[in-house]
Amino acid sequence: PPLQNNQPVEFNHAINYVNKIKNRFQGQPDIYKAFLEILHTYQKEQRNAKEAGSNYTPALTEQEVYTQVARLFKNQEDLLSEFGQFLPDA
């Protein structure tokens, strides 16, 4: 697909955000790893849903992604609210 004008903005935002999380949890690699795990599960579910068509209900909804990340980022309000900016239907 052709690149859209604001795609680099979203990409840069994502890079900065991942970098921020990495730095914040430098001493707690398990938290960072769990965050990556949540994202990958979500992405996998989205792909399954796309391939299966409209009959498929993803096992991990946006709401559940947000809940899991909120649990992970407890006491890190800024990271959580920024995460909400990425999530569809947040």
Binding site: E10, A14, V18, N19, L36, Q85, F86, P88
Partner: peptide, 27 residues
């Protein structure tokens, strides 16, 4: 400068595709 592993890069990819989907659903 960023020291990104392939895992980090895939997290960036997922996040930016989330943001794109969000934008698509809002427009």
């Amino acid at each position: 400068s960023y020291d990104f592993t392939p895992l980090d890069s895939s997290a960036v990819y997922v996040l930016s595709s989330m943001a794109r989907r969000r934008r698509a659903s809002q427009s």
